[in-house]
Amino acid sequence: MRDQLHEPLTLIDIAQTEHFSPFHFHRVFREITTVTPARFLAALRMAEARRLLVHSQLTVAEVSTEVGYRSTGTFTTQFTRLVGIPPERFRRVARALPDRPVASLLLAARSVLRPQQWARVLVRPENCDPQTLLFVHCRPVRGDRTQHHNWTSGTGQVLLPIDTLPFPGEYQAQVIAIAPSATPTEALVNHAAGSYLVGTARFRSPLHGPSNRQVTVPLRQPLSIDPPPLSVAPVRLLADLANRFAPAKITPNTAHAHF
């Protein structure tokens, strides 16, 4: 799939490369990756589209062709559904990411990432550096996989606010842990090796009020069978932090000011 993103692949095409029937391939693929072949292929295409939007001058129409779409409208609709915002808007947001390690950004913005005081569940990744930036996305196990709004961030561990777990029941937590030495673009756009870890865990949300429930999430390196993370939420948060805590610029009018 990764080598043929520019081609209009079908389930039959992909199944034939593994000498499976389409039905058998679909079932086995979903058992291994937890998603359907079509959803996995769409995720690969959108990840490559995100990279091209940030690192090239290609138009949206040209990007859509590069990742296998014959219709720019279909590409834009799919991109918006999976990433959370339209392609051109993603390009503007992602290009605002700072070109410096996440650790230095967190040092300036640590007051913004304070834990929520009114929370239901504590998500604590295993063997996690306290300075590691975490993004946690929770969804009902039987819910919509394309929600983008309920991401929570923190360092070392994350307390999930009540509004991210609106109903009691079983949830799945998806964790992205960005290495302190990685830049936001390396981890969230390029998906560079060693720049981030991933993990998932299921848990039940309590019925009312805060809770001392703790969810331990094992972290690991991303595998080739993992769909790439697509949501714009972590990208937008880091771009906003970079804008709010950018070093003050010296202008000609202030360079020689005396106080």
Rank of each mutant, 00 (worst) to 15 (best):
S231D: 15
R30C: 08
T152E: 07
A61W: 01
T164L: 05
L160S: 00
L219F: 05
R81N: 10
L230M: 06
I176T: 13
S71D: 07
N212E: 14
S104E: 15
H26P: 00
P125V: 02
F23P: 03
E62W: 04
P229W: 02
T36Q: 03
R110S: 13
T10W: 10
Q57Y: 08
R145P: 11
R100S: 12
F203S: 02
Q221K: 13
W118Y: 13
W151L: 04
L197C: 07
P22Q: 05
T155Y: 02
V217I: 15
N253L: 14
P206E: 07
T36D: 03
P184Y: 06
E170R: 14
Q172T: 14
E31K: 15
E7H: 13
T155Q: 13
P252Y: 11
A42W: 00
S111N: 11
T251I: 12
F25T: 06
V93H: 01
F79N: 00
A201N: 06
A246T: 12
R95Y: 07
P252L: 06
S104Y: 11
N190I: 10
T72A: 15
A248P: 04
T183A: 04
C138R: 00
V136R: 00
S181I: 09
T132F: 07
T164W: 01
V232N: 01
F203R: 01
L238D: 00
H191I: 07
H24W: 12
L238H: 02
R236Y: 10
D144R: 11
T10H: 09
H137T: 01
D99T: 12
T185C: 13
H149I: 08
V28D: 10
P229G: 03
L230G: 01
I85H: 00
D144Q: 09
D13L: 03
L230D: 01
V215C: 06
A192R: 15
L241D: 02
A177I: 03
A96C: 12
R145K: 10
V35I: 15
Q117E: 11
T33Q: 03
S104F: 13
R30K: 15
A61G: 12
D163G: 06
A179G: 04
T65D: 09
T34V: 13
H6W: 13
P166Y: 12
A257P: 00
C128W: 05
L5F: 05
G194V: 10
D226G: 05
H19Y: 13
V121A: 05
V217P: 02
Y69W: 09
T72N: 11
L230T: 02
